[in-house]
Design a binder for these strands. Structure first.
Lengths: 298, 298
DNA sequence: CAAGTCTATCGCTTAACATGATCGATAGGA
DNA sequence: TCCTATCGATCATGTTAAGCGATAGACTTG
């Protein structure tokens, strides 16, 4: 098998014309260059240089030209590889983050900003996927509304209580009794993830709302509420405050949605992922409900 | 610097899942694979695999993915290089042959046919260049109308006497006295190479023809002769026999054009070039004047 | 808790590498 | 023709790296 070091020597000899000058340029002794070229000629199966003898420079044989051309190519690739590794180690790599709507809107932006400030050339990929089981095999990091499996490390980012969202006037201001939801027309997320837990909790209390519409979009749900299709039980952080909506705590409270950052335990992380975890651990990722902009509420 | 052998091991480990199986596949001991990966991790500057311990397979780290991707690329190139060298050594390489009109027409075809028969994939390049000094630096082989410099090897392929070409009837059939050319209107090649020697020989005899037209094309010269512009003194092999032309030996004879095959002395030749030289040495390259085709003469 | 399956490490041997000195070959100038 | 400078090949020597087998340590599984 060819060796990159030998090819580098070949290139130096071809560039400098003589073994001695190439040796000087590479920091070798002349005899080393002789041996390296000899070894290369052994693997190539024939002479790569004609040695005219005397003070004349060596000259590439046709076979030498073939090997030289490929050698330059190969060494260029090797250099590119070294560069790529360096860039990766410097942090200008790639990070795959799994997320979901609320996290995307409220938790992710400060993380992204800090990562991009520290690593301007980095490649941040977001995968928004609503799933019951967190799959970290293709991700470095994942925002998830639950603690995940046992074999992941986790950091709780927020406790997000469920609230009743309705049109102003449909309910008295302030707390609403959970019992009042029984038979009530509701719009809701599909019954997976957090929503599944909510419905299980309601079911355990014997409370059965009528789900008249389901969709994955938070804003779409809120629009349905405004349109009078029904009320909604949603995590507080999923609700954008709005004059056309009234928000009621529930009593007794449903189990809050827990938002975690998950990553695979015992796995070596890329510098980017390690940095992101450090940022999260520092407590830089907090969430507050969003206010509708003044232009939208006017 | 990275080593191709280490990268090959990296790939094997990534493909087989464990160090041990990779070692078996590569014919190494397991400890060697451990050491190679360790060395690779040292040069890469970080771990390439996570070792979960126990009977679970190792898993690439993000850095490992970077190195693996580049490693596959690099090893592919190395394999391509090995292939190219093999193909070259097998003879399916490239050969650059310098030539000129007569050689192209009369001497080259059998050579080309034999080379292509023996090495179907080869790349034969012809460079037709009229020059006084043979330049073999970019060529493997060169047809030339002279023996060339001292530092080339040569093989004489033909002695090509100069003849007078005229319109039938302009001269008596048979030999023409050289003296008759004095003052005669002639068409001729440019005064380089063989033509220069011819004119020098005429000049030494005190014979001064009038050169009324010069061009490099043999056929063009013959056409001029047919058109009555003048006669031509040309090497016999450059003349295509034709009913509209009469060919006269000259007396006393001018020095014949000598056609040599030249190649650089002491140089390592590609298998193709070596084969070509062998063919020439065998005496397979001979020339006879061309006859005009019956269709053309009818 | 024992068995099985991994990787890491240690001691050892061997091959490869780098070095400096020396030799033979050749071109160019005196 | 001789001398000198330059160049590559080769040899002896010390050092590094690579291979191997054996074994220890870590972990999962039954």
């Amino acid at each position: 098998m060819y060796e990159l070091r030998h090819l580098a020597t070949l290139i130096a000899v071809a560039d400098h014309g003589t073994f001695g000058r190439a040796a000087t340029a590479l920091g070798y002794a002349q005899s080393s260059v002789s041996q390296q070229i000899a070894a290369l000629e052994r693997t190539a199966g024939g002479p790569l240089f004609d040695r005219p003898g005397g003070p004349r420079p060596v000259q590439l044989t046709p076979l030498g030209v073939v090997v030289l051309d490929h050698g330059r190519e190969l060494l260029g690739r090797a250099r590119a590889m070294t560069d790529a590794v360096e860039r990766f180690r410097a942090g200008d790599g790639r990070i795959d983050i799994g997320t979901f709507q609320t996290a995307t809107n409220l938790l992710l932006p400060p993380l992204i900003r800090e990562l991009r400030d520290a690593h301007p050339g980095c490649d941040i990929r977001l995968l928004e996927e609503e799933t019951d089981v967190p799959d970290l095999s293709e991700l470095d990091l994942m925002f998830f509304d639950g603690p995940g499996d046992d074999d992941v490390e986790r950091l709780k980012l927020a406790e997000d209580p469920h609230v009743l969202v309705a049109r102003p006037g449909d309910f008295e201001a302030g707390t609403v009794r959970l019992r009042q939801l029984d038979g009530l027309p509701l719009v809701a997320h599909p019954a997976i993830c957090d929503q599944a837990r909510v419905e299980a909790a309601l079911d355990a209390e014997g409370i059965r709302p009528r789900f008249v519409f389901r969709t994955v979009g938070n804003e779409a749900l809120l629009a349905m509420v405004r349109a009078g299709l029904g009320a909604a039980v949603m995590p507080r952080l999923a609700v954008t405050d709005d004059q056309d909506l009234s928000i009621h705590p529930l009593e007794p409270g449903l189990p809050a949605r827990e938002i975690y950052l998950l990553w695979q335990a015992g796995r070596t992380h890329s510098p980017l992922a390690a940095h992101a975890i450090a940022i999260a651990r520092r407590g830089a990722l907090t969430a507050a409900p969003r206010q509708a902009t003044s232009t939208a509420s006017s």
